[in-house]
Design a protein around this nucleic acid. Structure first.
Ligand code: SF4
Ligand code: SF4
Lengths: 133, 133
DNA sequence: CTTATATACGCCCTGCGTAGTCCTATTTGA
DNA sequence: TCAAATAGGACTACGCAGGGCGTATATAAG
């Protein structure tokens, strides 16, 4: 609970790696071997990051990935939300339509939790990839 | 992912309820009916909160629960860690022995994540139950 | 001393999300 | 044409969240 998924961690490691080699093109194979990450899992993470416009993919031989923008402009929050796909929320009513929660109308803590949610988002958004190199 | 468990939400709702009736004794039945919470689930949550010294239980007829200390002295973090039992950590290496993570030695992001972890703990610790009434 | 009302606590079931493997298609440089 | 890469779907194994049940124990009230 409250734990980041391995996919997110793998994504951060990969992005940090690319940034650390001055944004030179890097392959999944290279990264997965260096950090001992299952290659298929990392591959799909990279695909999501590509779709999320965080990295750029180059197909074919000599292909690989580079960052789509500067490391200072990529936040941990960006990475999480792109990989996770769904809206990141500390509670169901923040990540889906509120009415999905069966006790929404009776819930007395959604407002205070909203405040926490806001603070959480700030923590994740203010940490940029450039700070983790 | 990154979501609070229902148990934690139920615990917070219950504690807030007891605080809102000026710490008068409240029963599981009463709370579960008022907020439409499965009674068995709430019961076990209350038992954990009792063991964690956050609330006090009174057994037998006319029994129930009251807070063990003032609402200003109960943080959301207290509730989470007592209900969750295990150490709350944003990543495996923070909630269990670090060596459990197979890539611990190669991991380049554990330090920055540690900073986030610290900030997170601060967010949860600084929100007290007295603020959610 | 009996009964009704509580908490205490263990077992089990079900669904879903996570992590991972395998396989195939497509792109592209040499 | 071939080899190296990305793209992406199908499938499995496992653990945990959420909840349902059954039973034991404590105690106030009659
Ligand atoms: S409504 Fe209350 S209980 Fe339902 S998800 Fe939001 S916070 Fe949790
Ligand atoms: S070591 Fe790196 S990968 Fe392993 S848990 Fe800690 S942060 Fe995640």
């Amino acid at each position: 609970m409250l734990k980041l998924s391995k996919k997110v961690e793998y994504g951060l490691i990969a992005i940090r790696h690319i940034a650390s080699v001055n944004n030179h093109i890097s392959t999944v194979k290279e990264i997965s071997e260096k950090y001992i990450i299952p290659v298929d899992v990392l591959a799909k993470v990279m695909q999501k990051l590509t779709k999320g416009k965080i990295i750029i993919s180059y197909q074919g031989a000599m292909g690989g990935y580079t960052l789509a923008r500067k490391a200072e402009e990529i936040s941990v929050m960006d990475v999480i939300s792109v990989i996770e796909g769904t809206q990141v929320g500390i509670a169901q009513c923040f990540s889906e339509v509120p009415e999905n929660c069966s006790i929404y109308t009776n819930c007395t803590i959604k407002n205070p939790l909203g405040k926490i949610q806001h603070n959480l988002e700030h923590v994740f958004s203010s940490m940029k990839v450039s700070e983790i190199i």
